[in-house]
Design a protein around this nucleic acid. Sequence first.
DNA 1: TTTTGTATTAGTGTATACAATTATACAGCA
DNA 2: TGCTGTATAATTGTATACACTAATACAAAA
Lengths: 213, 213
Amino acid sequence: MFEHKTISLADQVFERLESEILTGKYNRGEIITELHLSEDLGVSRTPIREALRRLEQEHLVDISTKGIVIIGVSEEDLEDIYMIRERLEFIAASLAAEKRTEKDIAELRESLELQQYYVERRDADRIKFMDSKFHELVYRISGSTVLYDTLLPLHNKVQKFRKASVQNESRADASLAEHKRIFEAIAAGDKDAAAEAMKIHIINAGNHVIKKG
Amino acid sequence: MFEHKTISLADQVFERLESEILTGKYNRGEIITELHLSEDLGVSRTPIREALRRLEQEHLVDISTKGIVIIGVSEEDLEDIYMIRERLEFIAASLAAEKRTEKDIAELRESLELQQYYVERRDADRIKFMDSKFHELVYRISGSTVLYDTLLPLHNKVQKFRKASVQNESRADASLAEHKRIFEAIAAGDKDAAAEAMKIHIINAGNHVIKKG
DNA sequence: TTTTGTATTAGTGTATACAATTATACAGCA
DNA sequence: TGCTGTATAATTGTATACACTAATACAAAA
């Protein structure tokens, strides 16, 4: 009856470590060991290693003979990520406007309403969460597995930097307004408007996140 | 003296399986098991699993309770991949023209000379290899880890389809000419010309690989 | 004091045994 | 014939023991 989809320890460890690295718990260049992780998390090295292999593939860590070297996301990476997202989410929004179903529209609307709720309450963590949710929905609605797989990791990688941005009240308000504009265009099936609104949104978000030299 | 960099079994298994999946050894939907792989390759399940986890992350396989389900790359994925590459390699070429050193130029030139050599000898496998090498060099020279990590998997995923394309002699000649144009622009440090030449190249390559409905 | 060789230690890499879950085949029954 | 329950088998998930490599500390000699 109740879908008790058990998540493997390896997956849990991956999610946790990825989140901890992306939110800045570990410093760039810091070295950790499988044994420490194993003891800290209370699981054997096997699932730890499977998680680390995936993190290594994402270039979030480097596995050396001295241990696990934390890489994370640098300021330079940030600019590249927003540059790429600007181009690809432009496409994703266009496709989403083309392919969205009534159910998709309802999901987007609900996610926006929740975002509005949290923006009014100045709940930065949940704002960030709903912001991610909205973008992920657009990726999914685009119907392109390739776009989804390409964009989701890029989006996740800016977490640490995005939190500060979202705590800025005026930016939180503006971001919500931009999401609404994107939503309206997708709901109306207006491909060009959706793409353009998304492009502007990514550019604005990037400008607020990237520290200018 | 001799750098005998030992490659772990897990990495070897990953490379091999990835290549076999992308070149079409397994059919979409086919199910294999860890035990079979373990026996076939003569290694224990541990490195097999670590390889499979990475393949799963790339959406090349799906690990279910029935076994490992082969996903691979579909025809629909192809169009998305070339659409994305068109946009991102445009940027990569531009950055490469901006940042290339003399050493980079020499490497690109050498890779082109080899490609020419193999094109003249109609050696499809090696043409494909040198074609990949050229693009990978551009990714690297762009100086963006993010672009590199994003583009390399996308490029690799079209392997199976690219081989047929490269066996077409007129396309092989055209592709070489396009590479030369990209090279000249990068060597000259002409960002816009490099970007434009790359864009045209990707579009042409895509048109030859994608079967029209 | 510096350098070099060696013993030790700390770390990842691999194999194997076992646990848990789920698919499957088959028998019994309606 | 079709359905249902159960036993069996097949598969992935996890833990642990061991192998191997390389970094490190330390002592001895130049």
